[in-house]
Computed example of a mutant assay.
Amino acid sequence: MNERYLSVVQVAELLGTTVRFPRRLVEERRITYVKVGRHVRIPESAVQAFISANTIEPRRRRLGVVA
């Protein structure tokens, strides 16, 4: 159980967003989080899973097709 738990501010810095974005993810329950008293902590693995789930690969061009 060597999971690292991040604050909302740390998650915002990691994602390069404002603090409002990870708070909205928590409020909408779109990311796993833990309540420690009144503090919210987000497992680092949950942040990585969120990034992986929302990563979109570029389209590959088909040969011989003119766009």
Rank of each mutant, 00 (worst) to 15 (best):
N2T: 10
E3A: 00
R4A: 04
R4H: 07
R4F: 06
L6Y: 01
V9Y: 15
Q10I: 02
V11P: 06
A12G: 06
A12C: 05
A12R: 01
E13H: 11
L14C: 07
L14T: 09
L15C: 00
G16P: 04
T17K: 13
V19W: 02
V19G: 04
R20D: 14
P22Q: 07
P22A: 10
R24I: 09
R24T: 12
R24W: 11
L25E: 02
V26R: 02
V26G: 00
V26N: 04
V26S: 05
E27R: 14
E28G: 04
E28K: 15
I31R: 01
I31S: 01
I31D: 02
T32H: 11
Y33C: 00
V34W: 08
V36G: 04
G37V: 00
G37T: 06
G37N: 00
R38Q: 13
H39E: 11
V40R: 08
E44F: 09
A46R: 08
A46D: 04
Q48E: 15
A49R: 07
F50S: 04
I51E: 10
I51Q: 07
I51N: 08
S52G: 08
S52T: 10
I56N: 09
I56L: 15
I56H: 10
I56M: 13
E57V: 12
E57P: 00
P58H: 07
P58S: 08
R59V: 13
R60A: 12
R61S: 14
R61C: 09
L63G: 11
G64R: 06
G64E: 09
G64W: 03
G64Q: 07
G64L: 02
V65K: 05
V65T: 10
V65H: 07
V66R: 13
